[in-house]
Structures are given as C-alpha cells and as structure tokens.
C-alpha cells in the first residue's frame, strides 16, 4: 500500500484509463460474436426441422415455404472430404520435408516462405485458378471435384504449418534412440515420429477442414449451382452449404431468407463441432500445453 502512495495521481489515472480501454476493447470484440451467434440461433431455429435436413430445393418455387439443404449438406461433406484427401498427404509430406529433410537449405526456406504466403491467397483467387486451369484450360465441367480442388489449395498451408509444428515437438531423443537401434530414417519417421505427433496432426487437419467448410467464394465458380441432389462429386454441378446460404440470402422473399438463416445455423454447427472436437483432442492429449 505504501508503494502506491508514491505514484502520482496523473500516473495512476493514466494506468486506470488504459486498463479500462483494454477491457473495453475485449468487450467490443465479444459483442459481434454474441450478436452473430444469437441471431443465427434465434432466426435459424424456425426452419431447423426434419424437412430442411432431408429435402433439397428441387421443385420449390420462388415463394414456396419448405424445401431444404440436404443437397447442399451432402455436397459440402463430399467436397470437404475430397479436399482433405488431396491436401493432407501433400501437406503432411511437405511438413516432413521441412522438419526431417530440409536442413534449412535454400529449397526448404523457399517452401517455408511460400507456405506462409499461400495462407494469404484469397479464397476467391483459389476458385478463379481452378476455373482457369481445370474448367477453362483442361475443359472439364463444373463439379464437386473442382470445388474440392479449390478448397484443397486453401487447406494445404494450414495442414503444413500445424503438422510442422507438431513434428518439431517430437523430441530428438526419440529419433536418435530409433537410429541407434539401426532403424532407417524413413521407418523412424513412419513408426516413431508420426505416431507420436498423430493427435496433434489430426487436430490441425480438423481445424483446416473447419476453415474451408465455410468457404463460399471458391465454390461459386467451381461447383456452380443446383437445386437438386447430386451425390456424385465428379459429374455435374453440385451444391455446397455456404453457397446455399449465399444463394438464399440474396433472394428477396422471407421464406428464402429463413432458409438462409437455417443454413447458416447448420453450417456453424458443423464448423463449431469440428473446432470443438479438434480442441478437445488437443487438450486431452496435452493438458499442460494449453494456454
């Protein structure tokens, strides 16, 4: 208490004012989150029913009530799965290269730098690239697969970064013990390093999936639009849940806007669930690292 008395009033006031501003900044940041979640839940619940989850928009007129997002949910799940199938092996092997083989050489530094830069590639540009390359240059048609290609470009850098971080956490002692037993490097990576880092990598992949599951812009120019169910991601236009929300939100009548809110609720549930499970896995494996 005596120490406080030596601090002049103006310094103390300044300290208090800054503290107030810092608390205010945090409160300001939380307001939109609460507001978004509240609106999505309250507006989305009205149409969050069995019909919404099990029906498509096929044959639903402009002002009709009813209809659902089944086609979009199926599309999103397939596209995200395919995107993971493409990006996880490439991302994981790149991380292995950076950690185990790169030795901080020129190639390794270039890759590392461009992985960082790649995280900043706008999602719409990834979509335009797949449009230019896959659809206009190679002449394939719009499909869920094309959408998955675009999403995989957005996933790769996230997978590389998280896998790299997890691989670097594996103690060097473990690797050296394995080498000392005569196990070659690649088997050490496969049998010792990867299993040790496994849960961390799974967490990273799920966070990457959660990130791209909500992407709309790249789907717009790759999977196109459809109102009917298309279970085959390789032929014909598909739908995606974010695209469904975008489409319905832009329509002028209330029934469509209601569907948009329910679509947003479904999308947020999927994304938050992925996030939550990912964090739970991470927390469960290493309670001490959490900050």
């Amino acid at each position: 208490m005596t120490a406080i008395q030596h601090i002049s009033t103006s310094r103390r006031i300044k300290d208090r004012v800054v503290q107030g501003l810092v608390y205010l900044a945090f409160a300001l940041a939380v307001v939109p989150l609460v507001s978004v979640l509240w609106l999505v839940i309250s507006n989305g619940m009205s149409r969050f029913d069995v019909e919404f989850l099990t029906h498509s928009m096929n044959g639903i007129g402009a002002r009709d009530v009813g209809g659902g997002a089944y086609h979009a949910i199926v599309g999103t799940l397939e596209q995200v799965l395919l995107a993971s199938v493409i990006s996880v092996p490439i991302g994981l092997f790149t991380a292995i290269y950076l950690v185990e083989y790169g030795n901080n050489g020129r190639l390794s530094r270039a890759i590392s730098f461009f992985v960082d830069v790649m995280t900043g590639v706008p999602s719409v540009v990834a979509g335009l690239f797949v449009l230019a390359f896959w659809i206009l240059f190679l002449g394939f048609s719009y499909s869920g697969w094309a959408g998955a290609l675009a999403l995989s470009i957005l996933m790769m850098p996230t997978v590389v970064r998280s896998a790299e971080e997890m691989l670097r956490l594996v103690p060097v002692d473990l690797r050296e013990a394995s080498y000392a037993l005569g196990v070659p490097k690649w088997r050490t990576i496969l049998r010792v390093v990867l299993p040790t880092a496994f849960t961390g990598i799974v967490t990273g992949v799920m966070l990457a999936v959660a990130r791209v599951a909500g992407e709309t812009a790249p789907l717009l120019m790759t999977v196109f639009f459809t109102n009917s169910i298309n279970n085959d991601p390789f032929t014909g236009p598909q739908m995606g849940l974010p695209l469904f929300v975008f489409d319905q939100a832009a329509r002028p009548n209330d029934t469509a806007v209601d569907r948009a809110w329910t679509g947003a609720l479904t999308l947020i549930l999927i994304v938050m669930l992925l996030n939550l499970v990912a964090r739970l896995i991470a927390w469960w494996r290493s309670p001490a690292r959490g900050r």
Partner: peptide, 30 residues
C-alpha cells in the same frame, strides 16, 4: 524405401511451389 520417402517429401514441397506458380500462370493465360 529411404529414397522413395525422401522423394515423396521433397516432391510434396515442390508441388506446393508449383501450385503458387501455376496460379499466376493460368490466371494470366485466361
């Protein structure tokens, strides 16, 4: 095994660089 594994790891990294280059090339081309 060692060679193959090293090849896969390096190849994946090069693919990433190639994608960045391809984005620029194909956007310009179209």
């Amino acid at each position: 095994g060692e060679g193959l594994f090293r090849f896969l790891a390096t190849g994946a990294g090069v693919v990433l660089l190639a994608i960045m280059a391809a984005i620029a090339v194909f956007l310009i081309g179209e």
